[in-house]
């Protein structure tokens, strides 16, 4: 029985790790995961991808922290996809 507490906002962040940076691609991804995990909103969604799901404000705040962490860790590119949840259309149409 799905459907309770479907998140208002979902942000998918993919670190395109930079091989030339001081920290290894692995370390860049790990840094992102650590900060994302601290938000309490995060799940892994692929080798380089982390998803933040929750209320609009908390997700957008966390996105900023996670992107900053990625950049600080040496990543040059972070792909961000933000989706607002639409329950009714999700299982219909």
């Amino acid at each position: 029985m799905p459907g309770y507490d479907r998140a208002e906002l979902t942000a998918e962040l993919k670190v395109v790790a930079s091989p030339g940076a001081e920290r290894t691609p692995r370390e860049q991804v790990e840094a992102v995961r650590r900060v994302a995990g601290d938000s309490g909103l995060a799940h892994e969604a692929g080798p380089e991808t982390t998803v933040l799901a929750g209320g609009r404000g908390e997700v957008l705040d966390a996105v900023r922290r996670v992107v900053e962490t990625a950049l600080d860790a040496g990543a040059h590119v972070v792909e961000v996809k933000v989706e607002a949840e639409r329950d009714a259309e999700r299982f219909g149409s």
Partner: peptide, 24 residues
């Protein structure tokens, strides 16, 4: 393997937290 999943690499009804195929 997971590299061949064309789209979202996780699924789940409430929280998509389960890998279609495990990666790490």
């Amino acid at each position: 393997t997971h590299e061949d999943v064309p789209g979202r690499k996780v699924y789940g009804m409430e929280i998509p937290d389960q890998p279609v195929l495990a990666w790490e």
